[in-house]
């Protein structure tokens, strides 16, 4: 535990400059997102000017309980869109459904104009919609660099018949490695590049997951509780990375419990309750939304704990 803290502290000190920088004035990306969403009414299921993800009538039940029933939801390209809601509101389940990790009972959804409903998870990822997990999935007995290199798509050497023929894929492998090194560097993991990912601290694993996801060259990245289990000192630096991704044009959808985090970085917020979308809007709209307050009332105690399992 103490090991983890010190590791995070190191990363944190390296990140300080980035973090403080982004907090003070809105970045170009934030301004761009705000402008794009300017005319959008803060109501559930509202259409967006340039939606990258569109979901319709997505529903899923577990043992007779409707976990998700989203009538219509659009995610604006180039924004940070946060999904919030009380525990058990269906955010993570919705995440799993659209990313292909779970099968819905009904519903269609499209990504970047292509219908991807029911497509297997790996196809969805290859299309440029990559997700991370609430409980980080570092590939423990692969090195950090290998973890990141794995993310590259269209690798010739990943075909079984080509695999023993080194000359077929060696050139491409070198390019992949170069790109991976750059990402490892960017996410401040260079000093760990050749260590097993299993020894990374919680925060480093979150960074690693993001670096790995970026290796896929995604148009949209879905972060499932990126701050869960992370040393609070590292939160700001992680936020910095997320905002930087948005500023570079990647769409971000995230599930998060920490209200401060959400209010500070989101361009758009979608509120879930009992599986359905009950409100949408900019952070300021959500703060004053009656329905949201109602949904959280009485459940207030359950709200701010980021560590809890969102079922």
């Amino acid at each position: 535990m103490s090991d983890e803290l010190s590791n995070d502290a190191v990363v944190e000190s390296r990140e300080e400059i980035v973090a403080t920088d982004t907090e003070q004035h809105p970045s170009a990306g934030a301004e761009r997102a705000a402008a794009a969403l300017a005319g959008v009414a803060p109501e559930p299921g509202v259409a967006k000017p340039d939606a990258i993800l569109v979901a319709d009538d997505v529903s899923k039940s577990f043992g007779g309980v409707r976990a998700v029933r989203v009538d219509h939801l659009e995610v604006q390209r180039g924004t940070i869109t946060a999904l919030i809601g009380p525990n058990g509101a269906g955010k993570s389940t919705f995440f799993n459904l659209v990313s292909g990790f779970d099968k819905p009972d009904s519903g269609t959804w499209s990504f970047d104009g292509t219908d991807i409903s029911g497509a297997p998870a790996y196809r969805i990822a290859r299309r440029g919609m990559v997700r991370t997990f609430q409980l980080t999935k570092a590939l423990m007995r692969l090195t950090v660099l290998e973890n990141v290199m794995l993310g590259a798509t269209e690798q010739r050497g990943e075909r079984m018949l080509a695999a023993p023929l080194r000359w077929v894929w060696k050139g491409q492998e070198d390019d992949v490695e170069e790109k991976a090194r750059a990402l490892v560097e960017r996410f401040r993991l260079s000093h760990m590049a050749h260590e097993f990912a299993g020894i990374c601290s919680g925060g480093q694993r979150k960074l690693l997951e993001m670096a790995r996801a970026m290796m896929v060259d995604p148009a949209m990245i879905m972060l499932d509780e990126p701050m869960a289990g992370v040393n609070p000192a590292l939160v700001q630096s992680l936020l910095g990375h997320i905002q930087r991704l948005r500023d570079e044009g990647t769409t971000i959808v995230l599930v998060e419990h920490d209200m401060d985090v959400i209010m500070s970085i989101s361009d758009w917020i979608v509120v879930f309750a009992e599986g359905a979308v009950i409100a949408e809007g900019r952070p300021d709209d959500i703060r004053t939304n009656e329905k949201v307050i109602e949904a959280y009332l009485g459940k207030r105690r359950a709200l701010p704990t980021a560590q809890e399992n969102d079922a």
């Binding site: 990313s99 990790f101 297997p120 998870a121 790996y122 196809r123 990822a125 290859r126 990559v130 997700r131 991370t132 997990f133 999935k137 570092a138 590939l139 423990m140 007995r141 692969l142 290998e146 290199m149 794995l150 993310g151 798509t153 990943e158 790995r212 996801a213 290796m215 896929v216």
Partner: peptide
């Protein structure tokens, strides 16, 4: 590498396409 990734965590490998 993919094989070993599958060994470590199938879901992670799937999430990377």
């Amino acid at each position: 590498r993919v094989l070993r990734a599958v060994r470590e965590d199938e879901l992670a490998a799937r999430s990377l396409g």
